[in-house]
């Protein structure tokens, strides 16, 4: 089997979607000056909620909505803790990750009465659809065939975010909060409201990322199924310099690594070694990222408490 072919790119598209969605969420946080270590947990919450929504309503739209809302609720929790209660954002981020892991396993036991993973053959995953015009392009058109709608949503989002951040007044003010919150405050800009908005939206995107994980690729939930993708997304945000297109590129890179890693498993290399690939790549990429990858008045921040 060839290592690189169109089907690899096709699976890259599928696998980079959750990373991209979460990384765009990370972008929104970074742009209002929040270094969100909790992306991982938010995605996990989304993945679990999507399954719960799907199982109980058998309606995919409801399932995805539930995922978005729960991601948002937990993101608001993070916002409340850091903005209102001035808690350390890294500690809160870690706590969110842990809470997500604890809650999902706890609820897996209480709701579905299973340990480890939940799968029900009666559940439907997200439908596979083609994009009308793009899928007709020769050769690369196959990339836009039979993907979940979330893949296309994710692809469109960087453009939407770019327009929002750099063309609208609201986006301009959001950026100003991250650049210099004290200055924005002194102008009467409602910085806290903007931070809540950005974090809420970020949670929503993470919820979507989770839905793609649990309903798009497979139709199941397993404990800790995010497997560090939230952290990879955080690095994608940093590598992409918190710019929508930069993040798009960085996420694609990590999605590709994911896809290659999966591909390699089929050619009798121990899974442990192939699974390392995305993490090693991410770590190597860190050598090209300076600081937290966003311009602020407070650069040179140490990773201190």
């Amino acid at each position: 089997m060839e290592l690189f072919d169109l089907s690899l790119l096709h699976s890259t598209m599928r696998m980079f979607t959750p990373i991209l969605l979460a990384a765009l969420g990370g972008l929104l946080c970074a742009r209002v000056g929040v270094f969100n270590v909790g992306l991982e947990g938010l995605v996990l919450i989304g993945a679990f909620s999507a399954i719960v929504g799907n199982y109980f309503t058998d309606n995919l739209i409801v399932a995805v909505t539930v995922a978005m809302l729960s991601g948002m609720i937990f993101s608001f929790l993070l916002a409340f803790m850091t903005i209102q209660l001035k808690a350390n954002e890294i500690v809160v981020g870690i706590a969110i990750n842990f809470l997500a892991l604890g809650l999902t396993t706890f609820l897996l036991r209480t709701i579905f009465d299973v340990k480890g993973a939940f799968y029900d053959s009666s559940m439907r995953g997200l439908p596979r659809v083609d994009v009308p015009l793009l899928s007709d392009i020769p050769a690369v058109g196959v990339l836009f065939q039979s993907q979940t709608p979330l893949v296309y949503v994710a692809l469109a989002l960087p453009f939407v975010l770019y327009f929002f951040l750099y063309k609208t007044v609201a986006g301009f003010r959001l950026l100003s909060v991250g650049y210099n919150q004290a200055a924005a405050n002194s102008l009467g800009i409602r910085t806290n409201a903007i931070k809540y908005g950005a974090l809420g939206l970020s949670g929503l995107l993470c919820g979507l990322a989770g839905a793609q994980l649990s309903l798009g690729q497979v139709t199941m939930f397993s404990e800790g199924m995010t497997a560090g993708r939230g952290f990879v997304a955080l690095v994608a945000t940093m590598l992409g310099q918190s710019h929508p297109f930069g993040v798009l590129g960085a996420s694609f890179l990590f999605g590709l690594a994911d896809a290659i890693s999966t591909r390699l498993q089929s050619i009798s290399i121990p899974t442990q070694l192939t699974s390392m690939l995305p993490y090693i790549l991410t770590l190597l990429v860190m050598f090209f990222v300076r600081g937290r990858g966003v311009e602020t008045n407070y650069s040179n921040e140490q990773s201190s408490r």
């Binding site: 929790l77 808690a87 706590a95 842990f98 809470l99 892991l101 604890g102 809650l103 396993t105 706890f106």
Partner: peptide
């Protein structure tokens, strides 16, 4: 784990 995570969430 739920109890622990809640503790940490509020500790700082």
């Amino acid at each position: 784990n739920v109890i622990k995570a809640t503790l940490i969430l509020f500790i700082t």
